[in-house]
């Protein structure tokens, strides 16, 4: 998988608390060693959704990496997002799974996961997605049917025929274009300062 990592960029996991939720201890070992390589000193592990619940009830975590296909995995994320556990309810949740089927990805997204990564994992892919999630500034949305990071990545407004659901949505249908798009040179001539000879 292509990454956008800047090799000279800097990361600091020294004080980060990372919760790893994996079915098998070998998979958890892989994740933990990658994070230790990244400099993390506080990796907590859980092999079941119940264990993960116990941990997030007891202490704050900065990042959760979970295989949502463990029993109760998706439900754990939904429960966390709907809980009153601050700051954990808003912690970034990265779902990692060998099953990259669209149905599973949608299920993870709709449960409130921040991002989905398909296995096999590599350190580069994982770090790339972590840095993306850390910079993610999508608002935390709570509605009757969903709680978690805004699932819309683009600000395109509601789908055609659907009423606006938030104050920033434009509730007006845009008509067809009435003239051709401007060329790049026409746009440049409007925006770039030009030298003028007098």
């Amino acid at each position: 998988m292509a990454t956008t990592l800047d090799p000279n960029g800097r990361i600091n996991f020294e004080s980060a608390v990372v919760l790893l939720v994996e079915r098998s201890h070998h998979s958890a070992d892989v994740l933990q060693q990658i994070f230790v390589g990244f400099g993390a000193r506080n990796c907590l592990r859980a092999t079941t959704a119940d264990e993960a619940q116990d941990i997030v009830k007891r202490r704050p975590v900065d990042l959760i990496v979970i295989d949502p296909t463990i029993e109760g995995g998706y439900d754990f994320v939904t429960w966390l997002r709907r809980s009153d556990l601050e700051p954990n309810r808003g912690a970034p949740v990265i779902a990692v799974s060998a099953n990259g089927a669209k149905s599973g990805i949608l299920k993870a997204r709709n449960s409130g996961a921040s991002f989905f990564i398909t296995k096999p994992l590599t350190p580069a892919t994982l770090l790339d997605r972590i840095l993306w999630v850390v910079k993610d500034n999508r608002p935390f949305v709570v509605s009757q049917v969903y709680a978690g990071p805004d699932r819309r990545f683009k600000f395109e407004g509601p789908p055609p025929g659907v009423s606006a659901r938030r104050s920033t949505d434009v509730d007006t249908q845009l008509g067809e274009a009435v003239e051709p798009n401007m060329s790049q040179s026409e746009i440049d001539s409007l925006l770039k300062p030009q030298k003028v000879s007098l």
Binding site: L5, P7, N8, R10, I11, N12, V36, L63, P123, V134
Partner: peptide
């Protein structure tokens, strides 16, 4: 994760690969 200090991305990736070898 946003704090200053830490290590470069290149070093982190190399260290992670080395740590993976231990398991």
């Amino acid at each position: 994760m946003r704090q200053s200090g830490g290590m470069s991305v290149a070093r982190a990736l190399q260290a992670a690969e080395e740590r993976l070898e231990t398991v």
